[in-house]
């Protein structure tokens, strides 16, 4: 019964044109970045390495598929939450707006099963977005630029990772990035339970992300206490897999905090949805 509910919800997602916006946006954005880098990538790279290149000589292709994939990921991972929230923020409130939520809860499934079905379908959609992003970033970049060692740009310097040491980092990084996006999806589903229109939860989700990002970025002591617990602080945890040595403790902490957020958001959603007076 639960699997049937998940299947039905996923079909509903697949039937909405907006669900393809995310995939299309990723395709276009990656295409634009790859085109720009193919034409002018060396200028972009030399902006960073110019200081070192006064004294050092880099032998080999710095501008390769692995670096391109990294640049694409760090550029897009900030914008992907909007593409996710666009679909998941509509899962409950969209039904309420269309008037089909009332009919949905009259079916012989519990409200918990309905919500968990929507959550699982949303999680699958998020996974699809991450997989497509991974395919476009890594697959298309490697096809266009070829393989090579990865030069990671960190704010405290550069880290060069050898080609054979990169794929597992990408796979692990995508795993943590997925968890971060799933947190966004869960937040928007939770907000969706409180709303009867589609726009509200989507805009509110983005507003929360912007607010938390600003709090996280502002280097003032007053936010030091809350900063480590904001989910936005841990949304870039995927990058940690590209450090040498890998800070596993910090990654584990980020994973725990993201999972805790998912748990809390989901609990609030279940509590509210089970007691919601559905009038439309």
């Amino acid at each position: 019964m639960f699997l049937q509910a998940v299947y039905t919800e996923f079909i509903k997602i697949a039937a909405k044109p907006r669900s393809y916006l995310g995939l299309a946006a990723i395709t276009v954005l990656v295409g634009v970045i790859l085109f720009a880098m193919k034409i002018d990538g060396l200028t972009y790279i030399s902006f960073i390495t110019a200081g070192l290149e006064e004294s050092l000589l880099f032998e080999g292709d710095i501008l390769n598929g692995n670096l391109m994939a990294f640049i694409i990921l760090q550029m897009l991972i900030i914008h992907i939450p909007l593409l996710v929230a666009l679909v998941t923020g509509d899962l409950i409130s969209g039904e309420a707006a269309m008037g089909s939520l009332r009919m949905l809860v009259t079916r012989p499934v519990t409200r918990t099963q309905i919500l968990m079905g929507k959550f699982t379908a949303g999680a699958l959609y998020t996974l699809l977005i991450v997989l497509w992003l991974g395919f476009m970033a890594l697959g298309a970049s490697t096809w266009l630029f070829g393989p090579g060692d990865l030069m990671v740009l960190n704010s405290d310097g550069l880290v060069v990772l050898q080609q054979g040491d990169v794929l597992w980092r990408y796979l692990s990084g995508f795993g943590v990035a997925y968890l971060a996006l799933l947190t966004i999806a869960t937040l928007s589903i939770t907000l969706s339970c409180f709303s009867d229109n589609s726009i509200g939860p989507i805009v509110t989700t983005m507003a929360v992300i912007i607010l938390f990002t600003i709090i996280g970025t502002l280097d003032v002591p007053v936010f030091d206490v809350v900063r480590p617990y904001l989910f936005t602080t841990h949304m870039a945890a995927w990058r940690s897999f590209f450090e040498d040595p890998v800070p596993y403790d910090a990654i584990l902490q980020s994973v725990i905090i993201l999972l805790a957020h998912i748990g809390v958001f989901l609990s609030v959603a279940l509590y509210h949805f089970n007691r919601k007076d559905i009038l439309s």
Binding site: T49, G51, L56, N154, S155, G216, T233, H234, A236
Partner: peptide, 21 residues
């Protein structure tokens, strides 16, 4: 053994907004 000029990489370029060493 040689001196190299330090780099300044903008945080926006690295998307490393929350990383504090």
């Amino acid at each position: 053994s040689m001196d190299v000029r330090n780099m300044k990489i903008p945080k926006a370029m690295t998307a490393d907004l929350h990383q504090k060493k």
